[in-house]
Design a protein around this nucleic acid. Structure first.
Length: 519
RNA sequence: GCGCCUGUAGCUCAGCUGGAUAGAGCAACAGCCUUCUAAGCUGUGGGCCACAGGUUCGAUUCCUGUCAGGCGCACCA
């Protein structure tokens, strides 16, 4: 159990002990002022209504009870009825020793038993990946790392749309170039089509290999690349349509076969088989999800570009129907990633889909590097559009947050290189100044920061945590000389910055960014 | 017209299932390197949290409406 959860349960116990009441939710927050402690709860205000008592009185009684816990130096009542918790140095110190001894501090089993299929990117193999795919890749891969860190069993998957209309258009476009003819109006026109035409082999395979290579160079690999073609070949799509028919959620109308998604809140029913006998993409995707479910996952997560969000409702509907077949309740979560606007030093970078002259993810990685790329693409909440300035990402200055965090790591590494000596760690009280305390408390909050980020599927919280941590380290560094004549102080500070380095490394690892020893 | 997302400092954004005087970075201004990396630190200025109602002891947070922007609304993928 992480510290936050622990304090919540302490509070719940105190409430029960003093008032015999059970609260279904304990609000626990980080106060915005230092004088209000490290954590605070407003439970007394919630209880006040229920018990028809003065919130301050309740808070006082709770504080009295909670003050007995050895984790706290003091527990105070403040304001209209807040209970403020101040962590004790002894407790902080003992937690720091855990950080030092356990390289995987923060690793937990809060999501143990959850078998998750995480699908992301899933680009059509009809062209090179662009910056948007980069965002889904960075978000998806970070999610996978976070969820695993919290004990979930995660399989990552890239669904290859290697069948259907778009593929035909691609093949026609390449063939046209080969024969020296005009590319069809609705075909693909990018420069890469020319390159493909000059090469031997299946254009789809070639493009897929290029995409895989791009992703690998971005530090993103998948447990499985799932081919749409295989679904068709195995007759799985037809089976699925059969099932839908039997389930009562499929019906024939005007020569087409429809899915009754309106039963589940969709705007209209959706066509699965067109009147010309062709299956829609949606039909095939239902078959894919049926396959996912048959593989015994108990949770499905899909990272989806905002340009496909119209698709959410119908897929949720489909999964509900599919669940009935196996008599299980499988949750489908969609993480919608808003689009990326690319800039170069404030000027928008033109992206023309029609001519295919889009700047590719490869070019972006080449220009700004993997670290800055991944960092920038996960640092914003997925549901806000991202303004990505390549000029800024390249800058090695304080405008650039990724360097700020990495620099903290490099600085610590530099100090540690300068120090050689034994440390008797169990004898020491590490926290010995306001700055060291602030830094230490932040380190101890790492587990709950990761757990909350994972539980809410919000990878952007990791960079935010790291920037805050790096800031606290830099402040500590300026106020407290680490290596000095004072041997005891030196040892304490070495331990503290070692702990900080462990956490920064782990945090950067979770977003797939390197931790340089030197910069 | 309908649906989803967004609207917080000059700019880019945080704000944890409703809580205390709304935060950070950048930009601006003023300081700090004979000391472990100045890619850093300290300080100052800067806000009707888009707007209007509602629920509540308490709303940036929840509900309704309005306005603005993004993205979707096919027997395309």
């Amino acid at each position: 159990m992480n510290l936050k959860e622990k304090i919540k349960s302490f509070t719940a116990e105190a409430v029960e002990k003093v008032y015999g009441e059970k609260l279904d939710f304990i609000p626990l927050l980080y106060p915005d002022q230092k004088s209000f402690g490290d954590y605070a709860t407003s439970s007394a205000m919630v209880l006040a209504k229920k018990l028809k008592k003065n919130p301050k009185e309740i808070a006082a009684a709770l504080a009295q009870e909670l003050g007995k816990r050895e984790e706290f130096e003091k527990v105070e009542v403040a304001g209209a009825g807040f209970v403020n918790f101040f962590l004790g140095n002894e407790f902080i110190n003992s937690e720091l020793l855990n950080v030092l001894e356990n390289v995987d501090y923060g690793k937990n089993d809060s999501l143990k038993g959850r078998k998750i299929l995480l699908e992301f990117v899933s680009a059509n193999p009809t062209g090179p990946l662009h910056i948007g795919h980069g965002r889904w890749a960075a978000i998806g891969d970070t999610l996978a790392r976070m969820l695993r860190f919290c004990g979930a069993d995660v399989s990552t998957e890239f669904y290859i749309n290697d069948a259907g209309n778009q593929i035909n258009l691609l093949l026609q476009s390449v063939a046209a170039v080969k024969e020296g003819k005009e590319v069809p109006e609705n075909g693909y026109h990018g420069a890469y089509i020319q390159e493909l035409a000059a090469k031997e082999g299946d254009p789809v395979e070639l493009l897929l290999e290029t995409q895989k290579k791009t992703l690998l160079s971005f530090g993103v690999d998948f447990d499985r690349y799932f081919s749409e073609k295989e679904l068709h070949q195995g007759g799985k799509v037809k089976d699925t349509l059969e099932f839908l028919k039997k389930s009562g959620y499929g019906y024939e109308k005007e020569g087409a076969f429809w899915f009754k998604s309106t039963e589940f809140g969709d705007d209209k029913d959706r066509v699965l088989v067109k009147s010309d006998g062709e299956m829609t993409y949606f039909a095939v995707d239902i078959a894919y999800h049926r396959n996912k479910i048959s593989r015994n996952f108990n949770e499905l997560i899909t990272v989806l570009g905002a340009d496909h969000h119209g698709y959410v409702k119908r897929m949720e509907a489909a999964v509900k129907v599919l669940c009935r077949e196996v008599d299980k309740n499988i949750n489908l979560s969609m993480v919608i990633g808003q689009l990326v606007n690319l800039f170069r030093d404030g000027e928008p970078v033109r992206m023309s889909k029609r001519t295919g002259d889009m700047i590719s993810l490869d070019e972006v990685i080449e220009e700004i590097g993997v670290d800055a790329g991944r960092y920038f693409l996960v640092m914003r909440k997925a549901d806000t559009p991202l303004d990505f300035d390549m000029g800024l990402a390249k800058k090695k200055s304080d405008e650039n947050p990724v360097f700020y965090v990495q620099y903290a790591h490099a600085r610590i590494s530099g100090i540690l290189r300068n120090y050689s000596g034994e440390i008797k760690k169990n004898l020491l009280e590490i926290v010995d100044s306001p700055e060291s305390r602030d830094l230490a408390v932040e380190l101890v909050k790492f587990p709950e920061a990761v757990e909350e980020a994972a539980a809410s599927l919000e990878p952007h919280r990791i960079p935010i945590y790291l920037e805050n941590l790096a800031n606290l380290f830099h402040r500590f560094y300026h106020q407290n000389r680490v290596i000095s004549e004072d041997r005891e102080a030196t040892e304490k500070r070495i331990l503290l910055i070692q702990a900080a380095r462990n956490i920064i490394r782990k945090g950067l690892f979770l977003i797939g960014v390197d931790s340089p020893e030197k910069m």
